[in-house]
Design a protein around this nucleic acid. Sequence first.
DNA 1: AGATTCGGTGTACAGCTGTACACTGACAAG
DNA 2: CTTGTCAGTGTACAGCTGTACACCGAATCT
Lengths: 223, 223
Amino acid sequence: MSKVVHVRTLNRMSSDVEGATGSRQARKLRTRQALLDGSLRLLADRTLASLSLREVAREVGIVPTAFYRHFASMEDLGVALAEECMRTLRRGLRQARGRRSTSDLIKSSVTTLLEQVRAHDAQFRYVSRERYGGVPDVRRAIATELKLISSELATDFARMPALTAFSADDLRMAADLMVAAMMSIVLALLEVDPHQADDEREVVESAEKQLRLIALGMAVWRS
Amino acid sequence: MSKVVHVRTLNRMSSDVEGATGSRQARKLRTRQALLDGSLRLLADRTLASLSLREVAREVGIVPTAFYRHFASMEDLGVALAEECMRTLRRGLRQARGRRSTSDLIKSSVTTLLEQVRAHDAQFRYVSRERYGGVPDVRRAIATELKLISSELATDFARMPALTAFSADDLRMAADLMVAAMMSIVLALLEVDPHQADDEREVVESAEKQLRLIALGMAVWRS
DNA sequence: AGATTCGGTGTACAGCTGTACACTGACAAG
DNA sequence: CTTGTCAGTGTACAGCTGTACACCGAATCT
């Protein structure tokens, strides 16, 4: 409510207000980002398909027709949003892989995953909701990024001395399984209430065991 | 199109036409089922959230307001549809487990899964689409049924001599992982074109390997 | 045979949707 | 200083939505 007035004001006032400063293209970029952020806010517990153009325009405080200055359609917005979210996610995972503690790789992976999910709740919710339910283009965008994550993991596997017995195909297969398991863990984490520390711990422990089970299988695998 | 006329005719004509026969409650049940079937047809490549009451009424050839004689809302219809689909799926899986070939359990499981997916394409699509994207009640209905499948698998595991080393919790954990892997296989199968036999075979083989990897892990697991 | 139930119909309305069209005024370029 | 660009505005409209309301007529009950 107040937000609407806020932004609307920003684009009108001459100066001294953050929203109205910057070059024209900078301002355009800012409202574009506002559209993405506002959509994500509205998508906290709904599907993209059930979100109307007018609604997001209202949320960011622009008139409906102005939406078209930034996106050709809601579907377009959805794709851009998916790409932004997946970029965030992939960055998080890469950073997670970077600080691998030698002590317990799996434990630290799950911990980092938990941190990421809690830090980027809305993004994870959007992606997991649209991954299969969304319009084709959004689905494709997400699938592409997930494939990327999977192959990054596969090349990571390839560098591990313990996994020299794996063929390239099998590395891929194992990475796919690992990613699938992690996605189902993400979904379990999203469903549990963070305030219920016990429930959360239970999910985390089960997740660690599942990954350990897969790792165990990989240790005795022969291509 | 012609369907609309068809059904509309059925409910009007006096006799000799299948649609107008039977007791009143039988007829009611039949249109209720028609609503479920029609919805599933329309949901082939869309979300429940994007499907309107009027649309499904049109599809089955009744007037919009008549919808309320059968369901209180589209959400209600969605829940009923989810339950129906999951019942079908669970029956399929149970039957799959029944005819376990001693030769290769995993291979026959994947084969049966493929058969089931191909036979009940629309149901699988609906469930996997609404599993995370749907309205809360529909999600809950699906989650409940999946938990059931998982625990059926867990009790199955419990009867296997090779898995006596597993605690009850760990059996559950392993079953959850197995179900998660199978769901991701289902999704891969839904995405591949059945006419592209090579692609399909590739997915099947990868699926078998993934399940084998998990089984291998279970074989060397110690609670 | 008469009364009741109830799946189905048709009309109606307010509220929302996407988007076409003409506009304004601050910025950027010449 | 003039001119063009373009993110934003406001109005307008047709089409869709859910659902309230009054009604009908065949199956069912008494």
